[in-house]
Design a protein around this nucleic acid. Structure first.
Length: 415
RNA sequence: CGGGGUAUAGUGCAACGGUAGCACGAGUCCUUUGGGAGGAUUUAGUCCCAGUUCGAAUCUGGGUACCCCGACCA
């Protein structure tokens, strides 16, 4: 992508009423635009980053058998009434159609996925079964906050698992737990994310949350200093000792919940009377788990965690582009060489943002730091004297001169 | 939903009840180009509705939007 063609521009200053660091950076760098409180538009750069995050999640979920589908956003009132949530789900957006049909806008999809899977699954032979989707969710939040961290419309990966028995659910639940950490590692958040015990509702003792430490977080978690398990403040009073290792030393931190996993068992299969025939011929209720992770919230959290005074520092796999190619001293010679490098890198499948604009070097460097692509490549009269380009990683200070003939080989270790 | 705050140009700021101004951005021309360049020139604004007043960005009332704290929540 040539930066001269990119329709977004960077902003020197963020709007003053945005207090949240991550969204200030995302707004300034041109990743998102605000439409209304808790409603954001994803701009080209932002969408690229989001899609990278979605791709990582998708790959990892499919590695544990998840089959992707896409459920509806319009969910008939009837389905919500079946579980009682038409009345109890406070954040449900309710809309009315022409013939007075009423719908709830999808905020979570148990009401769709249970009767859906029920159409195809009859026997223990059809189980277990894992389906997931990545979709925009709608929640009429009482209060939105922290930029894209809590919005009324957000991106969500929701996975639902169906099992013949609790033991099998437990087995899969542990698998998802591991997978979530793989995802977090790939998006650069593993080091600051803790597995956290939270309330499990009425069907199990706990649910597990994935809490990433950041001052923009909404939750208070208590981290066991011995084993690293965290306990959400909401249930902490019941656990003076760590339920995992028995030690009593905790550190309190603010954190944001980037994902959660939940054994919902028969909570939703029961109202839909979703039964299967087991090996012994008996009809039994299907046992369920549900697992959520929010790509858009992850994106905000990544920025919240990975930045410096100059801007965003994208982890490799989430970055909107692999490299930021910059020409400075816009002479014909430099332009020609930069263009050649741009074309060559792209041919090799490297995603390049090429700053071909007629701007001063300082402005381009400042923009590059703000946008935060992991690798910066500079082409200038100076570097061309030795048939080289200059390479700098966003999270490092030093620069390296690399011969253009060796560039693609060199980049293999970076992208 | 309770409490607090804010609202002036695309963005950030000014303006005693008396001509709405500055910086950045954007447009045009010229000169520039290794860390947000210089000159010339142009562009664009008082959240909405009432009221007070000779006169309102400024005062009063109502509304709306946005931000923050709390309760709630991925």
């Amino acid at each position: 992508m040539k930066q001269s063609q990119l329709f977004t521009k960077t902003l020197r200053q963020a709007p003053k009423d945005e207090k949240c660091l991550s969204v200030r950076l995302l707004l300034r760098a041109g990743f998102v635009a605000k439409l209304s409180a808790g409603v954001y538009v994803l701009l080209p750069l932002g969408l690229r980053a989001l899609q990278n995050i979605q791709k990582i999640i998708s790959q990892e979920i499919e590695n544990i058998g998840g089959q992707r589908l896409l459920m509806s956003v319009l969910i008939p009132k009837k389905n919500w009434q079946q579980t009682g949530r038409w009345k109890t789900f406070e954040e449900l957006y309710k809309v009315k159609g022409k013939n007075n049909q009423e719908y709830g806008l999808g905020s979570t999809h148990e009401e769709v996925v249970v009767p859906l899977v029920q159409k195809y699954v009859f026997s223990y032979k059809d189980l277990p079964c894992y389906v997931y989707q990545i979709q925009t969710k709608f929640r009429d939040e009482i209060r939105v906050k922290s930029g894209i961290l809590r919005t009324r419309e957000f991106d969500m990966k929701d996975l639902y698992s169906f099992h013949t028995n609790e033991k099998d659910l437990d087995r899969y639940y542990e698998k998802v737990k591991k997978t979530y950490f793989k995802i977090l590692k790939r998006v650069g958040l593993k080091a600051q994310t803790y597995l956290c015990l939270a309330s499990g509702g009425s069907f199990s003792k706990f649910s597990h949350e994935f809490q990433t430490i950041t001052s923009a977080g909404e939750d208070l978690i208590h981290i066991c200093q011995n084993c690293g398990l965290a306990i959400n403040q909401e249930i902490k009073q019941g656990y003076p000792k760590c339920p995992q290792c028995g030690k009593k030393e905790f550190k309190k931190e603010k954190a944001i919940e980037v994902g959660n996993i939940f054994k919902i068992k028969t909570k939703y299969t029961e109202p839909f009377d979703f039964q299967f025939v087991d090996k012994d011929g008996a009809r039994k209720l299907v046992i369920m788990g549900c697992y959520g992770i929010g790509p858009s919230r992850l994106m905000g959290t990544i920025v919240e965690v990975h930045n410096d005074k100059k801007g965003i520092i994208w982890p490799k796999e989430a970055a909107p582009f692999d490299v930021h190619l910059i020409q400075v001293e816009n002479s014909q010679k430099v332009k020609k060489e930069a263009e050649k490098i741009y074309q060559n890198l792209q041919k090799q499948g490297i995603e390049v943002l090429y700053d071909d604009r007629d701007k001063t070097a300082g402005e381009k460097f400042t923009d590059a730091d703000l946008i935060g692509i992991p690798v910066r490549i500079v082409v200038s009269e100076r570097t061309l004297k030795t048939n080289s380009v200059e390479i700098k990683e966003r999270n490092k200070q030093e620069t390296k001169l690399v011969r253009i003939s060796h560039l693609s080989q060199f980049l293999k270790s970076y992208v």
